[in-house]
């Protein structure tokens, strides 16, 4: 059994309060192990980003975490619940333990400050006593790490290309050598070639530095290649979780199957690109039973009345689907 680093237990996140509240993340359980890349995939609106922001307490209002716990296991063996940590402790833990690379590389950098200022201020916030010169050296080192010439250190964000900005964000995320890096669609705004380069850089860096990654994307093909384990989200729930090779070969949930069929495989026999008919449900008026059943090609009678629970169906695999009865623990 690998060492656990982050445990999400029964996390519920919603937007708004009271009767009009929308439950965007429902009873999610996730575990991130040390040195692992955990992929989180799903359509737009499936709650993957909300999950990431919710568990790091970065969700802007009206988003609220309504329940659950997020246990972070520190290096010394003790654990803290991120959701109940006092603000000052949370601030200390942020970035030094859990760093985040955000969706919009373009907007993640403060437009009126130099790259150097933004790289240095995170160093300054977490180790105020380091001399200025050492911080500058570290900033330069970080840029080199992600393959940006150090003479760019004093550039403003608008002077860099989209790919370079995302590299800067990755450099920034690694500034304090965090143990967990959450990546929220880090390559969405970039073209395919740059996407590749960035991912390559990420893979290399992860091998060298050994941090764990939560990788959020709607691009399952990317995950299959890049991650160790994949959790598929649908309408705020995790519907399937498996090793990426297993998931790719034999998806159990019809939704995972649909996702995998919506992009062409590079190897293997030809097959039809099917896609998934319909669109994700409105979170305010969720279907009864399994949220996926109106779109499911293999729906059973039971699907529209009872919600399947996520459970182990076979070795190392969890799925929430009536097609695969699980031994409820």
């Amino acid at each position: 059994m690998k060492e656990r680093i982050l445990d999400v237990r029964g996390l519920n996140v919603g937007y708004g309060l009271g009767d009009d509240a929308v439950r965007a993340v429902r009873d999610v359980d996730l575990t991130l192990h040390k040195g692992e890349v955990l992929g989180l995939a799903g359509e737009s609106g499936s709650g993957k980003s909300t999950l990431a922001y919710g568990m790091t307490r970065l969700l802007p209002p009206p988003g609220v975490v309504t329940g659950g716990e997020v246990l972070y296991h520190l290096e010394d063996g003790s654990s803290v619940d991120l959701l109940r940590l006092p603000d000052a402790d949370l601030r200390r833990l942020r970035w030094s333990e859990i760093a985040i690379v955000f969706q919009g590389a373009i907007n993640s950098l403060n437009p009126v400050q130099r790259i150097s200022t933004q790289l240095v201020d995170v160093l300054k916030a977490h180790s105020p006593r380091t001399p200025h010169r050492l911080r500058q050296d570290r900033a330069r080192e970080l840029l080199t790490l992600v393959g940006i010439a150090t003479d760019r250190l004093h550039s403003y964000p608008h002077q860099l290309s989209g790919g370079m900005r995302q590299r800067v964000m990755i450099a920034m995320a690694l500034a304090l050598q965090p143990r967990v890096v959450i990546m929220d669609e880090p390559t969405t705004a970039l073209d395919v070639v740059v996407q590749r380069q960035i991912l390559r850089t990420l893979v290399d860096l992860r091998e060298r530095l050994g941090f764990s990654v939560v990788f959020i994307t709607h691009d399952l093909s990317l995950l299959v290649e890049f991650s160790d384990r994949i959790a598929i989200m649908y309408a705020g729930r995790v519907v399937e979780e498996a090793q990426s090779a297993d998931l790719y070969r034999t998806p159990l949930h019809p939704y995972s199957d649909g996702l995998l069929r919506s992009f062409p495989a590079l190897k293997g026999p030809r097959r039809d690109l099917a896609g998934i008919p319909g669109s994700p449900p409105d979170l305010r008026t969720m279907p009864t039973g399994c949220a996926f059943h109106p779109r499911c090609p293999r729906a059973l009678d039971v699907c529209d009345s009872q919600t399947p629970a996520l459970g182990q169906s076979r070795q190392n695999r969890s799925v929430a689907c009536w097609l695969h009865p699980v031994a409820v623990p």
Binding site: T56, L58, P60, L90, R91, R92, L93, R94, W95, S96, A99, I100, F102, Q103, G104, N107, S108, L109, N110, P111, V112, Q113, D121, V122, A125, H126, M169, M172
Partner: peptide, 24 residues
Amino acid sequence: DYVTVAHAKGLPERRVMLAYAARN
């Protein structure tokens, strides 16, 4: 986004407010 990033970086509240939000 950059304000959220500033929060995530664990910067002191004052700095996020002044150097990131108010400055822009």
